[in-house]
Design a protein around this nucleic acid. Sequence first.
DNA 1: TCTTGACTTAGACAGAGTCCAATGTAGGAT
DNA 2: ATCCTACATTGGACTCTGTCTAAGTCAAGA
Lengths: 137, 137
Amino acid sequence: MSDLLERLRGRGWRLTAQRRVVAEVLDGDHVHYTADEVHAKAAHLLPEISRATVYNTLGELVSLGEVLEVSTDGRAKRYDPNAHHAHQHLVCSRCGTIRDVHPSGDLLAELPAEERFGFQVAAVEVTYRGICPNCAS
Amino acid sequence: MSDLLERLRGRGWRLTAQRRVVAEVLDGDHVHYTADEVHAKAAHLLPEISRATVYNTLGELVSLGEVLEVSTDGRAKRYDPNAHHAHQHLVCSRCGTIRDVHPSGDLLAELPAEERFGFQVAAVEVTYRGICPNCAS
DNA sequence: TCTTGACTTAGACAGAGTCCAATGTAGGAT
DNA sequence: ATCCTACATTGGACTCTGTCTAAGTCAAGA
């Protein structure tokens, strides 16, 4: 994530304080913040940053493929900076905690041709649900 | 789905015109309507039905396990009456069409113990994404 | 250092869903 | 058959996420 800003500048991004701060908040591979959480944390570093900018920046990072959008609960989307390693999610049904996980097997291959209905299937997202150790006790 | 109302009455549900109509709209195993679509169709049968009642009724059907909540796009949730046959979803990335599909293999078993982080894993949801034949042409 | 087009801002707006107090009614009791 | 009352419905206000816009700001190339 540290060279993210360089990569983005190479793609014509203007390097503003706001974008720097959003990238900094998303640094660390295993966070799954909502846009509002990102905004709150960013505002801690740069108090005058606006909600709109956070949404804009997150949207750009997603279309550039640098961050993944995850919606596990039908409420706010979460942003996952771990975009360069394929992974799936394990979600606690009680507290909402999310962990990145790596199932075995070729998930895409498990959809038989006769179940594809002529679709060109390109991707698969898996969400495991359960109770985390914390909530279980 | 036809004996749904009987089953629910057995569980102490009051059988109102509104609930009957919502159940009727969801009849048919392969629909995936949003709450607003359900409301529109229900209002066609019972014009004075309110949005709040549709939301209430859908929520009750979900907690009773008679209907599944599906959120494939981060926008409105969709309601899937095909709750008694395990299945997954195949979604067109362009038009949003949803099909019920049945992958081979035991999806739950594919999350190795060392990837469970102590969770009691109970369920798995899979969304395949691709382009439907209609949009591809 | 100047210039300019890209970026940011605040706040209005929109879509999806929830909540609440007032009103209505299903279905058991009489 | 009618009455009662706890449960259901209503509409409108409200919340939460997210988008849009017009005006102001600024990064970075000339």
